[in-house]
Amino acid sequence: MALAFAHVPDDHRPWLWVQDKTAIRLSGRPYRPGLPRSLRHRLIHVAADKAQDALFALEEGLRCRDLAFVIGEIAGNPAALDFTASRRLSLVSTKHGVPLWLVRLAARHDLGSARMRWDVASAPSPPPQWNTQAPGDPRWQADLFRAHTFQPGQWMLGHDGQHEDLRVFTPDHGGVVSGTADRSLVPEQQTA
């Protein structure tokens, strides 16, 4: 997610990452050294106790035009994150021009107002080039299952070990289909 903005050379604004307590327990806190070099020092992290608090922090962040983008991580299907709350976040994101990625961990599909909805899961890594005992480059299976302006589909994303940006790979984990992940799939705003 953050990689989409890692290579925007003129944008040096900070960005916000909000997590509720259960999301932190499931996925951990952001690991700054693992972030793209251009984003590490600009991260503002908020650890919220409950989903309601996380939603409040997300909405306040979206109202701040001095942020480059906002990422929210909320676990499960809390009652606070209903269709109305999802729609409210989408409207605030659009009104203030701050992109939003809402990551739902261990959640079932329910109603939401997102322009694009994705299922993303880890995929098997290809064998490493030099050391057979080492892990291969990371891969993710990305399924776009709902979109207003794009046709649903599936992509295999990953790193090739030489570049920071994501690459789109063939389904057999072989060659690179495109040099970088299609920037047209980066919406003006996005929630899940």
Score class of each variant (00 low, 15 high):
T180L: 00
P138V: 07
R104N: 01
Y31T: 09
A4L: 02
R32W: 12
S93M: 04
E59K: 07
K21S: 13
D10S: 11
L100P: 00
R88D: 02
Q154V: 14
L58D: 05
G153H: 01
Q190K: 07
C64H: 15
P99K: 09
F56P: 01
T132A: 07
G34H: 08
A142G: 07
V176A: 03
Q151D: 07
R37M: 14
L55Y: 14
R117K: 12
R42D: 04
Q52L: 12
A181F: 12
F69D: 02
Q151W: 08
R108W: 07
D160F: 10
R32F: 09
Q154R: 15
A107Q: 02
V46C: 00
K21L: 09
G174Y: 03
A57M: 10
E60Y: 08
A134Y: 04
V168Q: 07
A51T: 01
S38V: 02
T149R: 04
L102E: 04
P171R: 11
H41S: 08
G153L: 00
L26S: 09
F150T: 03
A85N: 03
A107V: 12
L67V: 15
G161S: 10
L157V: 15
G34N: 11
S86T: 02
P135R: 13
R65Y: 07
H41A: 09
D10R: 13
G34I: 09
T191W: 14
D53I: 08
Q190T: 07
G158W: 14
H45Y: 11
A80P: 07
H96W: 15
D53E: 14
H12K: 15
L26F: 03
L100W: 11
S27V: 01
D66K: 14
H12F: 13
D110E: 10
A134P: 11
A80Q: 05
W101D: 03
I74Q: 03
S125D: 14
A54W: 10
M116L: 06
Q129N: 11
A48N: 03
A79E: 11
R13S: 13
S122F: 12
D66N: 14
H96R: 12
P128L: 01
T180C: 09
